[in-house]
């Protein structure tokens, strides 16, 4: 984030247009455009977004080949910690059940059994959530590994750049003040009050914490657990099995990480929309982010 800035005069507008623009977060009053995200952050961000969506959806396609998770090195088929099953009803429809720690939950239509073009199918996740849509393990795996490579290449460049340019230290890792203000910021976020003016120039503490957890914890964890599932990697690095408590535990952690990513996605996108969709989106595409003059909104 640099301090380059352009001054923009307020624009006269019709009330209807202005209401839409306010909802989208297009600044109304006098504002300054600051260069918020460097080209590297923007490029890495969008490559990453693409990779994560494809990895999540192809991963769910892989999961569907054996929709059950276990703890340890081997699979105890009698005691999966999570599984999805389907049961045929008299009228030809299916009942889908999700078992968590051996307790059944009826998830018909969503998990275990769902409809594809009106046709009932026994499948873990429904066709609209997987990639490719039809059950096709071989292709899901090929997409998964192709985008895993892209994700890792992108992350490697981003890490090298982030360390070299001080982006992590300066912009991402929470500092002591951030941590002290954290409870206050959580309250503010829950009330959907977002930083304005000068305070919006930089990531706030909660943002820093969320991004840091995703980049430094969740990311490495999902890559390493992904590799632990490879028998050849386990021959090269048996420590991986020790680290994660076995291949099937690694698979379970991988799955939990994937859903933590999904949770992050949803909150991240909600925050982007609520704190000014257009301004945020533009800043991640062009780099320029509008900051209102302190007096314009108070």
């Amino acid at each position: 984030m640099t301090d380059q800035a352009q001054r923009m005069p307020a624009m006269p507008q019709s009330p209807a247009k202005s209401a839409v623009r306010t909802a989208l977060g297009v600044p109304q009053g006098p504002h300054t455009l600051v260069y918020r995200h460097s080209m590297w952050v923007r490029a890495a961000h969008w490559v990453n977004a693409l990779c994560l969506v494809i990895l999540l959806m192809s991963g769910l396609g892989i999961f569907n080949a054996h929709p059950a998770l276990y703890i340890g090195n081997g699979s105890d088929f009698e005691r999966p910690i999570l599984s999805m099953t389907a049961q045929q009803n008299n009228d030809g429809s299916l009942t889908g059940t999700t078992w968590i720690a051996l307790k059944p939950f009826d998830t018909t239509g969503w998990l275990g059994a769902s409809r594809e073009d009106g046709q009932w199918m026994a499948r873990g996740f429904p066709h609209w959530a997987t990639l490719p849509g039809p059950q096709w393990l071989a292709m899901a795996r090929q997409w998964h590994f192709a985008f895993a490579w892209l994700l890792v290449a992108n992350a490697a460049l981003f890490f090298a750049w982030g360390v070299w340019k001080g982006h992590f230290r300066r912009d991402l890792l929470p500092d002591r003040t951030n941590i002290r203000h954290l409870p206050h910021e959580i309250v503010q976020h829950v009330k959907l009050r977002f930083p304005h003016g000068e305070a919006a120039r930089r990531y706030n503490g909660l943002q820093k914490l969320a991004y840091s957890i995703v980049i430094f914890v969740l990311g490495p964890l999902i890559v390493l657990t992904g590799l632990t599932m490879s028998p050849t990697m386990d021959a090269a690095f048996p420590q991986l099995l020790w680290l994660f408590g076995g291949r099937q535990t690694a698979r379970t952690i991988h799955f939990l990480c994937a859903f933590s990513f999904l949770g992050f996605f949803i909150i991240h996108i909600a925050m982007v929309v609520l704190s000014g969709a257009w301004n945020n989106l533009r800043s991640m595409i062009t780099g320029w982010y509008a900051i209102e003059k302190e007096d314009s909104r108070g």
């Binding site: 090929q142 590994f145 490579w149 028998p231 050849t232 386990d234 021959a235 090269a236 048996p238 099995l241």
Partner: peptide, 27 residues
């Protein structure tokens, strides 16, 4: 075609780390 190249990349990379002689874990 591209996915096939990715398979080659994965194979080469894994051979680089695993070599010819590392053993699969025994239990």
């Amino acid at each position: 075609g591209i996915l096939g190249e990715v398979e080659n990349l994965t194979r080469r990379a894994q051979h680089l780390f695993a070599g010819q002689h590392t053993l699969a874990p025994e239990y």
